[in-house]
Simulated scan of single mutants.
Amino acid sequence: MMSNLFSSFDPSTTFFSLNWISSLLVFLFLPTLYWLIPSRLSFVWMKITLTLHKEFKILMNSSLQGSTLLMISLFSMIMFSNVLGLFPYIFTSTSHLSLTLALALPLWLSFMIYGWVNNTTHMLAHLVPQGTPSVLMPFMVCIETISNIIRPGTLAIRLSANMIAGHLLMTLLGNTGSLMSIQLLNLLIFGQIMLLVLESAVALIQSYVFSVLSTLYSSEVI
């Protein structure tokens, strides 16, 4: 019995925990992409990669060759981490701000430094939207500055909160199974299966949202 509902997300339940090493399980799937004869999974993954490449290329609106590979790699890492976290006894690393902030903060910081160093006028113009009355300009500068500063936080919190919410609900429902009758237990199992399907969709959607928003943020500074 868990002493705390959030203990299932605790990365340091022992003195030396191997929970964070489960984040490296994604590398077990990479060698299958380099077989001489591609599998069906490789064809599906290549199709997803090409689709993301076309979409990110339009969003970034950049002439830099290979600029979409960074966002595709980011999407792949987050997606594999989210999906692997649905399996039993595998630590969900993306449910912690220590990982999501480590992904969002360097990206945002690099975009800001690049934009303010190379496109200072363009960055200043973003602080005041076109058509803003002169009276509201100081307020718009404050609002736009705050919205820019909180971007890495919103990226990190959105991903970790969505991962925690579904896992918490499944844990909470699973702990009540021993107190239920057979009829209610069948309904609980069906509900857990539906939640697992929903969490699988959330795992894919949140990785896509994280990478798309990062791409949109980068397009503003180039």
Rank of each mutant, 00 (worst) to 15 (best):
N148G: 12
L84P: 02
L50I: 07
I149S: 01
V141I: 15
S95C: 08
I48H: 05
S98I: 07
T121I: 10
F87T: 00
L74I: 14
S62P: 14
Q130F: 11
T68G: 02
S62N: 14
Y114I: 08
F139E: 03
T121V: 11
I146T: 09
T120Y: 11
P129V: 09
L50P: 11
M77H: 11
R158D: 13
L101Y: 04
S39K: 06
T154P: 09
I113V: 13
L107A: 13
M112G: 01
I48Y: 05
G115N: 00
L41C: 05
S42N: 10
I149Y: 04
G131N: 09
A104L: 03
I58M: 02
I143C: 12
T68N: 10
V135M: 11
I78P: 13
L136N: 08
T68V: 11
L99R: 01
S98C: 01
P88F: 00
Q65S: 05
S39T: 15
W116G: 07
L99I: 07
A125P: 07
V117S: 08
L52T: 00
S81H: 12
I143A: 15
T51I: 06
F43M: 13
H122R: 15
M163D: 13
T94E: 14
L86R: 08
R40S: 13
M123H: 04
L107P: 09
T92W: 07
H126M: 15
P88S: 08
Q65W: 12
T154I: 13
T92G: 00
G66V: 01
M140S: 14
F111K: 03
T94V: 15
M77D: 02
T132S: 03
L74H: 04
